[in-house]
Design a protein around this nucleic acid. Sequence first.
DNA 1: CTGAAAGCGCTTACAG
DNA 2: CTGAAAGCGCTTACAG
Lengths: 326, 326
Amino acid sequence: MTTLEQVALRAGCSLATASRALNRNGSVSDGMIRKVRRAAAELGYRPAGSAAGRLGRRPVIGVLIPSITNPVFASSLSSIQNRMLVAGHGVLIAQSNYDPAREADAVAALLYDHPTGLILTLCDPATSSVLHSELPPTVLLNNMPTPQVPAAVTVDNRSAGRELTELLIRLGHRRILFVSGNFAASDRARLRHEGYCEAMAAHGMPTLEAVQIPFVGGYDQLDLSAAISSFSPTAIIASNDLLAFGVIGALRREGLSVPRDISVAGFDGIAIGRLMDPPLTTIEMPDASMGAAAASLLLDMAENAVPARHLDIAYMLRRGGTVRAI
Amino acid sequence: MTTLEQVALRAGCSLATASRALNRNGSVSDGMIRKVRRAAAELGYRPAGSAAGRLGRRPVIGVLIPSITNPVFASSLSSIQNRMLVAGHGVLIAQSNYDPAREADAVAALLYDHPTGLILTLCDPATSSVLHSELPPTVLLNNMPTPQVPAAVTVDNRSAGRELTELLIRLGHRRILFVSGNFAASDRARLRHEGYCEAMAAHGMPTLEAVQIPFVGGYDQLDLSAAISSFSPTAIIASNDLLAFGVIGALRREGLSVPRDISVAGFDGIAIGRLMDPPLTTIEMPDASMGAAAASLLLDMAENAVPARHLDIAYMLRRGGTVRAI
DNA sequence: CTGAAAGCGCTTACAG
DNA sequence: CTGAAAGCGCTTACAG
């Protein structure tokens, strides 16, 4: 391991000057900066931990998402990482796997690394114990802001649920079923469902009881036969696209065709939806922009002391072939 | 910020004892350990950077993958993170975006954080400049081992390419086209293609020139008309599932149906493939197991000084409805 | 089992 | 612009 002292020796200056040259604070002559940088490069110098103030590592931020394998969160994470690379911050990751208990552990682990800040997608910010610990600058992503954490980047999921439901109502559907992941694990699903309820109520339609599907490794084996026979819906709204694919598969196994026998729509707008035949009708969420916005907001707060804000980003209804008029 | 000194004061012992109690080295009485731990908890103590030896942060490892949004890599990354959480290591991420130049920068950034070790999926280990710098314990994931980095976790992509091609040949296909991402960006694609070539040659069939598709934000707008009309293939092998979906969409736009007019197969076995209709024929890669294996191997090397190894993990051909006999 | 003290690699007033 | 020196929060021989 190379120390700063060795670099200083090689550059022919003092430890102090070498430190200043490398960190670009204090004033050092250009020539000396060059000499020190060269020496550092030749020796492959990388700062070790230091006790004074910041550590010898890059500053890092921590990102908590429910699951890296969900393309929605992967997309946000990817753009966060890209933004942070430019800003010279490392990105540490944590997953809750949609489990509030693991969520708390995951954040505790992240805090152990002294991150500059945190970007969190929680199961439910209202009940999460995470927000009660002392936190560095923090931005919620995909969760509504709370009194403790007023910085957030969201889309209006409730309005999206309303809009999608209204599309189906306009197309003549009356018996519209909402199929969801576990509400306890996702306030986004809950908000989308509320939007569905509002739209149904506004049009005097019966709100069918939501079918909640626990996520267990995938939606391969989804069984919708009971719900279908008791509600005989003409349209199904799934609380996310992955689930919508599972629903379409389940309907196929029941001998039902989409959209001929039943219409299906989802939320998220994941890339695969456009490649399907027919393409999935969905609410396209700007995951990448949201990730980038959260990253920028966090940096502004942490480095420029900009006050916390709530950013509401626009979504877009994308009409595919999986819904049709009745 | 709470310091160890404050913890020691509250626990009624010296700095040295507090340090030993928290790190469980040296000998400290059980009673004292309890007192110190309680004091630390009450004050919300978290170790800051220290100069002596290891830093005040959790140890971290660095993971480089081409892209977080590719479900194959997301799946590996997720299982790496799960494994490392148990082992008490943070996980820092970096993306190359399939660009060898960015790859080098990304690894340099990772090294700046003094990771315990590295898990890398490179564009091409043979030409990568990354491997020439001085590296901490490193495991290649999805790349064949090299003289500098003999630790690797792979599947036999060449053999997988051979096997998939032989399935098509057995089914009566002769004009089999290989559609690939950019070979320069993926040695996996190259190996899969080599397997295709070997199988074709072994059966005396004409090896059609591979169609290379640059990855630009997605495979939505793939145009295969030129290749179709000049080769008129009866089957297409795509170098990965995402691309296979794009190929199926492109064929649909040409008015061709899968598998009636043309068979299509891919590699990777991403979850969505099973939900499609018909399900995609593919080589299922054990991404999650590979990630976990790489993580375990890295920890063994870094913490137990276990020598580097090359782990070859078994893949599985999954027959879906997208290929049929001619 | 415990503490006083030296030392880790670094940063940053303080002088010049 | 530069250096000698104090100090950061911690760990670890060395004594007891």
